[in-house]
Design a protein around this nucleic acid. Structure first.
Lengths: 348, 348
DNA sequence: TTGCGCTTTGTATACGTATACATATTGGGC
DNA sequence: GCCCAATATGTATACGTATACAAAGCGCAA
């Protein structure tokens, strides 16, 4: 590791930030006048506006949003609670959320939850920043926290999570329906020995997908033959879970995986290590429709979560809650779609 | 899309946030005393501390970080400028940065640059938030912006980017050296017809990797036989670029791809569409060592960027610059490592 | 007791902005 | 030239916190 040092330019170093008072003094107007120039809808004469702007230019003045936030009681910052960055589905989600927020004039303050960490410890610190709202993904909001948010008037939208409290908005994909669709797809194709590989057991998405899958099987007179748990939503643990699944005497002929990464791990184990032909000898269906699911290497049949819709709806619900604090609590459930590819057998 | 509405709990709705003044009144002390209870290193008697904490508990008081930031002139917020979320390398990076910052008591305010967007438009708005520092990845900092940061005393660390200005710190992987290593690896294995697939042409990482590669070839008396450009760092455009490469009469027998995603695209085209055997008939080497490079499906030989070191060093440089504004400008260059896997031929 | 140093507390002010209010200016119709 | 409405401006204050300063309290040695 090589390090080179350069001398810093010291020309600007000590000049402090100019404030509206400095601008006002230079322009020969009052501080209030300067403030009005920077506030839409306030009446300022063309004359003072130009004088002010000239002073602004000369001093390199830039409004102090922190000070404005203090008096306006609004920061234009949204707390974004996230976890599994490395799952492409969530990476895309964060990308879309930050971008959509920026388009609305808001900024995302990211709260990254470690795997073993509770939201209780860190969310209060984010609330101290007087965020105008919260978007919570991949974490459970205890009712104590929900109450705390409600008390401070901070609207919360849960993304793909259950509400443990009546005061938080929810936008989610119909994970249960996704599970049902997979059940139908497998049964219609004539599969008999069906398996499910779970992701993170504690997550509500996982529970819903499994419930939908199993319940539909039962409705049609079938049972889940095997159940294995990866433990999280990763490729590696999906691979390992599949390995355990195939140590059985009569292994499954169709596997529903709780997400695409697990499915890709399971698929690689089957075809590369065990030489099982997909989809001829084994059907695999995932969940999410991450970009790599469409790659020729995998060509994974999967349940697509309607990404854009989910994100747009979340933003819309949040903005509405911010602008209209008295609004009703919304629970939006968006249906998923089956994306037919080549990792699962067609109807017989 | 189904929507259900629930009535909001209105119990807490209208109670405004308690301030230190409210706490002070209830505890029978001055506002300053309350402030001191929440400030480390200030002397407060045990008696008043308990009185204050009791009032705090009763009122549900929570410090207002925004107000504190205003008077202390420090927000504990770091602006994190990012772009390619969906590249696993950058997703991991954002994850590690946000986590490392939180461990240091800072928060990341994310600035997401759209593909066609300039930093000039949005960075000033982040500066208005009085961020204590900036980490810039995947974007070019013009010297005008660098000067603006310097003037406002906001330290900047460029991550894997060149400095266009003498006042910004830099932490990067030695991309040039990475290119050199690939050249040596290919030549040592006896390859003759060498190709390079570029990523985003305007990025300095891309330039460095190519320069190192080509220069080393020349040093050893060889030339780059083919050059193709993907246009960005994605799988899809890597696939397409490889397609163009193989329309030639005498296609390459070794391809260096500017990153892993491109390499995986190129590999899939070669082996799945053209039935070219990797590594027997074609060697492919990527850059980054993203998780999927290690998957059995790809088993991609690649240049690993020393992730943890890069992130840790960036944080360290930034913290130092924040705590010690007079510090020298640092330029840290971390060497990469060749990760041998099975997508490239060994020495003859 | 006095006096000295240390700790604790309150008062007053500052941070940079927005805005209610009062006042001053402008413009237009007659 | 006058009056009224609309516009423009300045003054004063508020947002919630930290901290300089002075004053007060305390313990302790002489």
């Amino acid at each position: 590791m090589s390090a080179r040092k350069r001398r810093i330019l010291s020309s600007f170093k000590s000049s402090p930030d100019a404030s509206q008072i400095d601008v006002a003094r230079l322009a020969g107007v009052s501080q209030a006048a300067v403030s009005r120039v920077f506030t839409n809808g306030r009446s300022v004469s063309e004359d003072t506006r130009t004088k002010v702007m000239a002073a602004v230019e000369q001093l390199g003045y830039r409004p102090n949003v922190i000070a404005r936030s203090l008096v306006q009681n609004s920061t234009n910052i949204i707390g974004l609670v996230v976890k599994r960055f490395t799952n492409p589905f969530y990476a895309q989600m964060i990308q879309d959320f930050t971008r959509a927020l920026q388009e609305q004039g808001y900024w995302a303050l990211v709260l990254n939850i470690a795997e073993n960490q509770e939201l209780e410890d860190s969310l209060p610190m984010v609330l101290q920043y007087q965020v105008d709202g919260l978007i919570i993904t991949s974490a459970t909001l205890s009712s104590r926290l929900a109450e705390e948010c409600a008390r401070s008037g901070t609207p919360v939208v849960l993304f793909n999570r259950y509400a443990s409290d009546a005061s938080t908005h929810v936008v989610k994909c119909d994970n249960t329906e996704g599970g049902r669709i997979v059940a139908d797809t497998f049964l219609d194709a004539g599969h008999k020995r069906l398996a499910f590989i779970a992701g993170e057991e504690s997550s509500s998405t996982n529970r819903d997908r499994e419930t939908g899958f199993v319940d539909r099987l039962k409705e049609r007179g079938h049972n889940l033959a095997f159940r294995e748990s990866a433990g999280d939503y990763s490729y590696e643990l999906g691979y390992a879970a599949a390995q355990r699944l195939f140590q059985l005497d009569a292994p499954p002929d169709a596997i529903f995986c709780a997400n695409d990464l697990i499915a890709m791990g399971a698929m690689d184990l089957a075809r590369l290590k065990l030489n099982i032909k997909v989809p001829d000898e084994l059907s695999i269906i995932g969940f999410d429709d991450i970009p790599s699911a469409a790659w020729p290497s995998y060509d994974l049949t999967t349940i697509r979560q309607p990404f854009g819709k989910l994100v747009d709806a979340t933003i819309q619900v949040l903005m509405n809650a911010i602008n209209n604090p008295e609004c009703e609590v919304t629970e939006l459930i968006v249906p998923p779609t089956l994306i037919w590819r080549n990792s699962s057998r067609r109807k017989e």
